[in-house]
Design a protein around this nucleic acid. Sequence first.
DNA 1: GTGTTTTTTCAACATGCGGTGAAATATGAT
DNA 2: ATCATATTTCACCGCATGTTGAAAAAACAC
Lengths: 244, 244
Amino acid sequence: MDASGQSPYSHRMDATTSTRKLGRRPKAVGGEAAREAILDAAERLFAARGFNGVTVRHIGEAAGVDPALAHYYFATKRGVFDAVFLRRAPPLNAERERLLDELEARPADEVTPADVIAAFVEPALERWAHGGPGWKAYLALVAQVNNTPEWGGETMTRYFDPVVHRVIALMRRCLPDAHDVDLYWCYHFLSGALTLTLAETGRIDRLSGGACASSDYPAVSTRLPEAMAAAFVAVTARGRASDR
Amino acid sequence: MDASGQSPYSHRMDATTSTRKLGRRPKAVGGEAAREAILDAAERLFAARGFNGVTVRHIGEAAGVDPALAHYYFATKRGVFDAVFLRRAPPLNAERERLLDELEARPADEVTPADVIAAFVEPALERWAHGGPGWKAYLALVAQVNNTPEWGGETMTRYFDPVVHRVIALMRRCLPDAHDVDLYWCYHFLSGALTLTLAETGRIDRLSGGACASSDYPAVSTRLPEAMAAAFVAVTARGRASDR
DNA sequence: GTGTTTTTTCAACATGCGGTGAAATATGAT
DNA sequence: ATCATATTTCACCGCATGTTGAAAAAACAC
């Protein structure tokens, strides 16, 4: 379709270091700025209204940019969405891996289920609370995708399964008698509790008559690991007669 | 706009009893059949692809009906959605209320947190497992709305808050030392775990390599109340120094 | 049958959609 | 300045959208 030498759509995470020196690829700072503006706007809009509730024109307008630029950089609307989803996954997972490394280095009897859960949820919760509106929108988007039938499950699998497998493995280590099926189901419950929190629908605010706030990071940070650790312990405590 | 005597869009839950007798309103059985066909098709499509992922033409085609009929019966696409959401809420909540009545009639020390949770989740899980594809789609739709920012929280509040307040009240009765804030947050986690289950994304199937199935009703029914009851107990066990 | 009302079909509307391709502009090397 | 490339703008395409109003068909009362 395009006869130009360089195909435009590519994830260039590099080139940010040498923006002003010469080299064979100057690339332009203006280009990257527009690209990021599109991603930021799309991130916020997709999180608020879902993939089908947003148009390329909305994104362009919100980013202060011609809508056709979205196609120039990402080829298609779905390409914009994928780029949004991809952008913040590596740093988030990297910190999760780092915390899991620390736990793995400790003796097994010095690691509690709450520690493992905290290593999984805390990197997300911390960015959700203190990472700025971009992270907040991104995590709400992840939460939304996690609860979307059909392609939701597959998308989450692709981006987040490796770290989850490590969480399960660590949990297995500190709950040696647990059946794997129980561990998977408990992770499933944990995942649901976490993603509903990140979605920040405001329902708990209304339900509690203002006693609780959807955005209350300390309230979640102290209760979620405690609650779900108890869930893991209770469910895996005894041999189970039924199923499998 | 319309000069005819009877405005067409109205929730007529009556008239089903006297369909064949005379009276001033014969109403027609064909009409109700088409109406239900539209709701069934819309239910399935909205659950699978979300409000904005479905068109009125899709609904008409899936229902085997002219798309304009959707406007004849429900005035607008949003009207179809609201009618879908409304249709199955009363029977679901009615059974929840019935089970909560039973628990309320029992002495407080004979009701466990797991009982209260089961009274809340079991009516949903049972229909999800054995209620047929209509209920399955409906519950997936509820799950999706529950995790939708902005209007998701408000919609859920309107339809489901009364029964949730009764759940909290019963939980307060069997955990007398609990702080209300802790109860609300634990309900929030429970709600997240339940709705992710009902969304049935298939993620746990992939994650577990087939050891777990998203649609495994006994697996959920035995574990979810147990897990979340332990969460309630653990979080509310002690006086909490932080927040509030 | 006639007449009335409800239900269904059909064609069309204004608008907005994702996407395209060429022209215009900016950028930087030589 | 000149040229090549990267970026941005703009007009436009074909198509799908929600919705409408009038006509046709069916259902029913008499």
